[in-house]
Computed example of a mutant assay.
Amino acid sequence: MDDQSEQTLPPPTLPKDLRISLMGFQDQKFAQTFGEHLCSTLAACSRVLDLERLAGVTVGYDLASAIASVDMGEPDVSPPSFTSTAEVRCIAKAVTVKRDGIEKTHVVYSAAFIEDIVDDELPGFQQALHLIAHELGHVAELKWRDESAPGFDEKLKDGMFADNLFLHTATAVWEEYAACRLTGFIGDVEALKQEYAKNFDESAGLYLGRAREKIKDYRAHQSVRTLLLEAGQHTAMPLKLASYLLGHLDANQDETDLKVLCPTYDDSGLTELIPRFWTALRSTWNRMDDKAGLAVFDELKQVVIESYVNAGVNITPQGEDFFVNAPFTAETMPNGEADMVEVRALQALGLL
């Protein structure tokens, strides 16, 4: 980068007291080289992302140990757990911590996935570059959201269970959309697009059957809270994976038809919900500076509710809470149509 290009960029926002920890590096020479390139990458990203609230960076070959090492900044608060599934593999995590009463982000990376950052000729360089930038996107998003819609933690402590669950899901999908939209131009743009499309498309084909299995379980346990939690894990998954793809497309002003990009999605029962979801994400992006508070997530919360309805769980506002029920259908009964014969008989007799 020449001096003239350097002058056209915004000033760096990397905290001067930033601490970087490397764990599990056996080759000290490589560790030093890696650390130098990581610092350069962080500094470069800090010119296009607001990293004022970056509390620290940890890189380790054992991701679980690296996350466990993070100082949460509050007594009796443990670092978050993480899960990796066949659909979503955790290779980095943005951990929210407290420093002097302010929420900040400590970023943790799996070393194996970003070690190629030491040489732009290595095959994994573009992936490493984007992974580093994406997690830093969460740092910028946290500050933006916290200044525009404060009070999230307080709301979760005081609000109703169902409303809090919907809000939590809405903010989770928003965070990924925002991080991808902020950093989608960094790295191999086309490879990222194909990866995000593949992940979303696979989830679109799986979510409905999995959510209905949880509704079948509800017939036995009759716990609405359990139903919302367990079915919600599956109804939220395509939203979360779509948020990566949609944020990436918007970052690059890519207008590719989703039905062409994701053929399974075209036959998934989501083709009405996802466009509304995309509109809500864009609306939240455009309104985040309006200082509307947590109401900025209302559109996304409604889409989250609709995702339950799409799977067979009806959710109706009832005062400050919600009425939740799962109508009897062959798809959500343990024995399918055989159970529905009995249900119809009981309904005809007025016993159900």
Score class of each variant (00 low, 15 high):
P334D: 01
P317C: 06
E141M: 13
T235L: 11
S21L: 13
T256W: 05
I186P: 02
G209L: 08
L245T: 03
G137Y: 00
M1I: 14
V48R: 14
R287C: 13
K29W: 07
L346Y: 06
G24M: 01
E141F: 11
K29R: 13
A197E: 00
A112Q: 09
C45Y: 09
Y109W: 07
H134A: 11
G73C: 08
P275F: 09
H106A: 12
C90W: 03
K16G: 12
T235G: 10
T33V: 13
Y218T: 04
V324Y: 05
Y109K: 04
P317F: 04
R99T: 11
N314H: 11
G269I: 05
D298T: 03
A191N: 07
T105F: 09
M72Y: 08
T183R: 04
L246R: 04
A179Q: 02
V189P: 03
D289P: 09
L206C: 12
L351C: 08
A242E: 02
H138V: 06
V48L: 14
L38C: 09
L49W: 02
L228C: 05
P327L: 06
N286L: 15
L167C: 01
P263A: 08
Q126A: 14
E190A: 15
A204V: 05
L229H: 08
L51N: 06
T264E: 11
V324E: 01
T33I: 13
V108E: 00
V313S: 05
E195G: 14
Q318T: 07
P334N: 04
L349N: 09
R210C: 13
S21E: 10
I186V: 08
I114S: 04
L22K: 04
A220E: 11
F34E: 02
G151A: 06
Y196Q: 07
Y61M: 11
T264W: 09
E320F: 08
T256L: 10
G293Y: 03
T13S: 10
S307N: 03
L249S: 05
L54W: 02
A111G: 07
F34M: 09
D100Y: 08
C39W: 15
K157L: 13
I91K: 11
C45A: 15
L142H: 06
R287V: 10
